[in-house]
Design a protein around this nucleic acid. Structure first.
Lengths: 84, 84
DNA sequence: TACATATTTAGACAAATATCTAAATACTTT
DNA sequence: AAAGTATTTAGATATTTGTCTAAATATGTA
C-alpha cells in the first residue's frame, strides 16, 4: 500500500499511467511523451513496476509496458472506507 | 490533486485520517496516538489541511480536527478512470 | 498577574527523491 | 563481426521530506 501511494505521488508517473490506460507502449514511446531523459523515465517505470501498477514484457529489442488495473482496486477500497 | 497524493504518501498521515474517520480529535489526542513528537504531528496535520483532507476548528484551548471526505471524491474519480 | 496546558513556528539535520550524464547490456541489421 | 537502436544501470547532485529540540503564541486557571 505504501509502495502504491509512493508510486502515485509524482505527476510524471501518474501521466505515464494515463498514457498506458489507453494502450501499451514501449519505454521509448513513453519517454518521447515527456521532456525528461530516458534514464529518468526508466526509473519512474521501475517504481511503477515495483508497485505492481504496470507490467513489462520484452518484445525483441523493445520492452512493452502495460497497465495493471487490478492493483488500483486496493487504492479504491482504501478510499471507499472514507466515503459516506 | 498533487497536494492530495502528496498528503496521502505517508503512513502516519493515512493513519491520522483513519483515526479522524471515526471521530473528531484534538491535535493532542492525535499526537498521543503516535510515538513521534507533537511538532511533527502538527506538521502532518498542516499538510493534510493544506490538501483539504481535514479541517480544523479552534475550541477554546484546543484545536479540533475533522476529516473532509468530500475531497476523497477527487481521488476516487481519478482511480475510477482506470477501473475496467 | 503568574503559571500551566495546548498547539504551532522556527531552525537544523539526516534520509529519500528526481534528475542528469556516462557507461553497460541486449537485440537487430548490414 | 561491426555498427546502430533500445533500454537500463551506475554514480553524482540538488531538492524535498520527516523528524527533532527549543522557542513562541494562545487559552485557561489559581
Amino acid at each position: 500500500m505504501n509502495d502504491i501511494f509512493k508510486a502515485l505521488n509524482d505527476a510524471t508517473r501518474r501521466e505515464i499511467l494515463e498514457l498506458l490506460r489507453q494502450k501499451d507502449l514501449s519505454a521509448g514511446e513513453i519517454a518521447d511523451a515527456f521532456s525528461i531523459s530516458k534514464p529518468s523515465i526508466s526509473h519512474h517505470l521501475d517504481i511503477l513496476r515495483r508497485a505492481d501498477l504496470i507490467t513489462s514484457e520484452k518484445k525483441g529489442q523493445f520492452i512493452i509496458y502495460s497497465i495493471n488495473t487490478t492493483i488500483m482496486e486496493d487504492v479504491l477500497q482504501w478510499i471507499l472506507t472514507f466515503k459516506k
